[in-house]
Nucleic acid binder design. Structure first.
Lengths: 179, 179
DNA sequence: GAGTATTGTATGCTGTCGCATATATATGTA
DNA sequence: TACATATATATGCGACAGCATACAATACTC
């Protein structure tokens, strides 16, 4: 779904910017995923999960649900469950029962998982710089980040308004940041 | 292994802008794909292929290879081959032998395919406006498109330089395992 | 405290992906 | 012409995705 034919040639037509975004995303991601695979033997989903565990506030652990939501809508719940199973089979994480809620599972990265993250992250940073970073100037990166963050913020703001309006009680998210 | 040109906190650190781009892409795409599926029963890959056929310069036809390349690295060659087979099975396109090259196949959208594109495109435009367009102002869309287009142009420029340079390569695409 | 709804995670099934490879045609070279 | 190589597309196969659903534990309501 890159850039279809359309009408609406106005200045606020979002199609050109969306098409350009899709084009950049797809080609850069393609390069980065290839680099991770070839130079670090790391699947991009695995890398992403390890990265969020790395940043987790209690050392290297996150409840499954929070980790899944941190990864945007990248995986469905079943898909994410299987990703974690594979990672556990590969020795990258452990799954521990949550003592506070016996339905829940806490994912903890192992020493091997953290080592693999460090190696893969070096590849990732290098590939991203080559494939994306050096194609824009300093100010451009900052401005791009600002604009795109506005989109996310605006979207999220409206979503929580909708959520709050839809239910009488808005006990929605557990009191965690978890972007 | 490449040396870790690691964590730059500089202004030209591409990570924040890349992360923001990924976040916007994933969530907007999620919404748009859901809308296409729910309101137009159209897979996003099918929609993209129909869109490129729609704007093809000879009426509604393109050689398979060109159509595939137009869709960026979204599908592998085999994956694209099967996408077209499915579309043909659904009556959205025909595959005709190319009289000039009997290896090749020309994909032609059928009347039904064009009708489905029009219906799906209306859904697409509406969903994109809701999910992406209205979260930025007019100038922002233009500036965003300009910046991202620069990335694509710069990337493409370098790629053709590399292609022209020929065999002077580092050890990139080699099948070395490494971990 | 019993009954129902809700939440967290896992599994069966099916569809589609990418990789490796096969097949057919085209092109280059002797 | 004969042969090696390149290009266009298709198929076998294994991996992984999402949907629907199952299962387990918790939370709400009375």
């Amino acid at each position: 779904m890159s850039d279809p034919a359309t009408h609406e040639r106005d200045a606020d037509d979002p199609l050109p910017s969306w098409s350009a975004l899709v084009s950049v995303y797809q080609s850069v991601l393609h390069d980065v995923v290839a680099a991770l695979d070839e130079q670090a033997s790391t699947d991009s989903g695995v890398f992403s999960a390890l990265a969020y565990l790395e940043r987790a506030r209690p050392p290297h652990r996150l409840p499954m649900g929070e980790l899944q939501r941190a990864m945007h809508p990248r995986y469905s719940q079943p898909g994410f469950s299987r990703l974690v199973q594979r990672m556990e089979a590969d020795g990258l994480v452990e799954r521990r029962p949550d003592p506070a809620d016996r339905r829940a599972t806490i994912v903890v990265s192992t020493r091997a998982g953290r080592a693999q993250f460090r190696a893969a992250n070096a590849v990732y940073v290098a590939a991203l710089a080559t494939s994306f970073g050096r194609h824009l100037g300093e100010d451009d990166h900052a401005r791009l980040a600002a604009m795109l963050s506005r989109v996310t913020a605006h979207r999220d703001g409206e979503r929580s308004q909708v959520a709050a309006a839809g239910s009488v009680r808005k006990r929605t998210t557990k009191s965690t940041s978890a972007s």
